[in-house]
């Protein structure tokens, strides 16, 4: 099954099919009868097997936000074509992403500079705390995307690394 959702770090493969009356969820070899009756303002009744649950759902792009039993969850849909293409290209992650939203306090490196694992690349500030981002491995700084003082969101690519030539 090629569709997937990411919930936190975990990836869940699943499929959806239609039954005579509603839908079926294909998950871990199980077939579960499901249905969703949507009401106003994101409120909906979810049927999962024998259970009927009130939920609130909102979507934006590939993100699905679900309020279930008092908790809000964010799931990110992964289209099979994206997921399978990414699997194929896989390998070492060369992008260094922001662990949290914030701004650049100090940049310690320049594009083209060779860095060694553990070397400080930049200092960012988030929520009144400074965080040091260091090199995950040896390499060369391919590009720096933000300047000192600029703000960014979580998961923004701060800089990219290429292998030492």
């Amino acid at each position: 099954m090629q569709h997937a959702f990411k919930l936190g770090e975990a990836e869940h493969n699943l499929a959806l099919s239609r039954s005579a009356k509603a839908y079926r969820l294909h998950l871990d070899g199980q077939l579960i009868d499901i249905d969703l009756k949507t009401g106003a303002d994101g409120r909906a009744w979810l049927t999962v097997g024998e259970r009927h649950l009130p939920v609130v759902i909102a979507t934006r792009g590939d993100e699905v936000f679900v309020h279930l039993e008092g908790e809000a969850y964010a799931l990110r849909y992964q289209h099979p074509l994206d997921r399978l293409a990414a699997q194929a290209h896989g390998g070492a992650e060369d992008s260094i992403r922001a662990p949290m939203p914030g701004s650049i306090v100090a940049l310690s490196v320049q594009a083209g500079e060779a860095v060694s694992k553990g070397q400080t690349l930049l200092v960012m500030e988030s929520m009144k705390m400074e965080t040091t981002i260091s090199a995950p491995r040896d390499g060369v700084i391919a590009a720096i995307r933000y300047e000192k003082g600029q703000t960014f969101d979580r998961d923004a690519v701060l800089l990219s690394l290429e292998p030492l030539s």
Partner: peptide, 22 residues
């Protein structure tokens, strides 16, 4: 069972998945 419910809700709210089924 919460995971099942979340994935069910998410699948039913995702157009590419729903389109395949529908």
């Amino acid at each position: 069972e919460s995971l099942q419910a979340l994935l069910a809700a998410a699948a039913l709210s995702t157009r590419p998945m729903r389109d395949v089924a529908d």
